[in-house]
Design a protein around this nucleic acid. Structure first.
Lengths: 164, 164
DNA sequence: GGACATCCGTTACAGATGAAACTAATGCGG
DNA sequence: CCGCATTAGTTTCATCTGTAACGGATGTCC
């Protein structure tokens, strides 16, 4: 047993790559991602809520429909990681607030075509600069090259995550 | 109005940096972080739950106490973004499962010193390689330099997020 | 055109989460 | 010591989130 703990020959211990049987939580990628995303989401949610009375799912639905009006609830759900229940609730809230309009699909009575109302569009246009400004604060210290690197690395992580 | 839409002089439209009044959700950093972290967390949560009956808060508490035994619940809460309610629940679950032991603090009867039991430590040691393997799958396509870049960029984002 | 599988969106229910109230213990000022 | 503010941790309650069941609509196969 004691011989098993002998340091492996010439291998130098450089920056201490962390013992194999321990794991520092603050260096653990899934943990860091969760904490970071949570902090960011909270900051944004507070702003959306305070200034526009919007939840994050509602904001997502608005952002999608601003770019792609006429989607159905199912299509919205497919375009985001929200399930159809979340979309249904967000849609209801937005309609009650007069920001979204649902119109019957000509060929399929089960579907509803969704689109922002002018009021919804107006709010969307007020949110976009605010969202961009907050996003800019996140990457404030970065140069163009670093932002591109971040983009690429996130894309790689996203692809890897899809295979989990 | 039509004159307002005139393209700005010599500025070439390279990769279309995206109109100022629109926002593509899938390129929006807070959204990407939330979706990515959520996907990763779900994958991990499923494994922890299936194989060890652990929730993510429980796993975090274990990971902390494995490295720093003797912390109090408040200290655990300070070391993570979990509030004390989450820690309290995680601790209760772990104690009921026999993985954690709470002992009275000599000098302050309100505090409890927390530490993994031998059974808890055994489980921890079984989780670590699994967690590392999943983490490795996330960064599977990356070279050492890319991983370092990711580390740095995440650290920058974390710092920026703290100022939000 | 009628039985049956499938799809759209909502509702119902259960578990997770978070804020605030609460209990018990400590510290501190006089 | 005694009152009062503060701290540790739990409990309570309201809300959020996700899974499953559902009602109505379509389509399809014979």
């Amino acid at each position: 047993m004691s011989s098993a703990t002998t340091r492996r020959s010439s291998r130098r211990q450089e920056i201490r790559p962390e013992a194999d049987d321990q794991l520092r939580l603050e260096a653990f990628l899934p943990y860091r991602l969760a904490v970071l995303a949570n902090a960011v989401s909270r900051a944004f949610a507070r702003r959306y809520e305070d200034e526009f009375g919007l939840s994050i799912p509602e904001w997502r639905v608005m952002a999608l429909l601003a770019v792609s009006p006429g989607l159905t609830a199912t299509e919205v759900a497919e375009a985001t990681p929200m399930d159809k229940v979340a979309v249904s609730r967000a849609v209801r809230g937005l309609i009650e607030a007069g920001r979204l309009r649902a119109s019957a699909d000509k060929t399929d009575a089960r579907r509803q075509r969704l689109a922002l109302t002018p009021a919804g569009m107006a709010i969307y246009r007020r949110i976009v600069p605010l969202a961009r400004a907050l996003e800019a604060r996140l990457t404030a210290g970065m140069g163009t090259d670093e932002r591109e690197a971040l983009d690429r690395l996130l894309a790689q992580l996203e692809a890897a995550a899809r295979t989990l």
